[in-house]
Design a protein around this nucleic acid. Sequence first.
DNA 1: GCGGGATAGATGAGCTGTCAACGATCTCGT
DNA 2: ACGAGATCGTTGACAGCTCATCTATCCCGC
Lengths: 155, 155
Amino acid sequence: MNATPRWLTPEQKAAWDSFIRMQETLIGRLTRQLHVDSRMSASDFIVLASLTERGGGRMRFLDLAKSVEWEKSRMSHQVGRMAKRGLVAREECPDDGRGWFIVATPAGYRAIEEAAPMHVAHVRRLFVEALSPEELDTLARISQRVLTHMEQQPD
Amino acid sequence: MNATPRWLTPEQKAAWDSFIRMQETLIGRLTRQLHVDSRMSASDFIVLASLTERGGGRMRFLDLAKSVEWEKSRMSHQVGRMAKRGLVAREECPDDGRGWFIVATPAGYRAIEEAAPMHVAHVRRLFVEALSPEELDTLARISQRVLTHMEQQPD
DNA sequence: GCGGGATAGATGAGCTGTCAACGATCTCGT
DNA sequence: ACGAGATCGTTGACAGCTCATCTATCCCGC
């Protein structure tokens, strides 16, 4: 008994489909806008934002990776590319010979400071303004619920 | 007057952050599971699903692209890769010398039929079961709202 | 002080997505 | 019947992501 059905109910499938479509469209448009406006990828933006907001412009590599919930390999490649373009720099870590500090360069600060207002404007225009404050709140609650549910689940 | 503020309110930012975090975590986990379970990428799955469900296993290239809302270049690369792995094939189109039909091969059918139940199970486990039917419904409504709002907006 | 396991991070291969440019065919007005 | 545009789809260059593997350092018990 009590076998979980093989497929979703029509309501469940409809909810899943529209969530997926919404999320893809939204992320896609924001990513493209960011690139057009600021010649930056979403990854660049996230890293610089986390580094400057939460880290004061200077963070240990793995702390940075954890702060955005990325695998270290992804962050390593990303930092490598950003370093090549002069957005961040690596500094040796005196306390730990294996470790590095990742530092936002002046060019990195300039980049995020120029990009952020436009990016926020697009988020507002495409997402926030689509919803009432109550809906926004509901969505936040639902997202939290899914997140905590996932944390309790194995992979 | 009435200038839109430079940043989001704390409530708006909280909603945006938890939505983004949820969506990334969820999609990431589903993608990894799909790959582990079925050696298929999310793109493979989407293409095969659309092709077999909506197209009866055979669709014009651009119809296929539109059905999943992808750019043609993305679909072209994807179809190329899938053809190389034997999941789909291209067939000439008698009516239009420029065009092609994309066809799901027997291997393609087998792949999607084996992958789908597990994938649905993960969607259920990670997403559907996190929420009450009412919440699921609310999320669907909110997603729809954002989608139609975006359609009315320029890029 | 040294040997084993854990930790910090880099690296390379292979797949995916984007953008811009391209070639081929179709359509339609004249 | 022919030339201009539109449409169908491909291609190449390049950035991004994942997975597995690797090196260097650190920590800790003996």
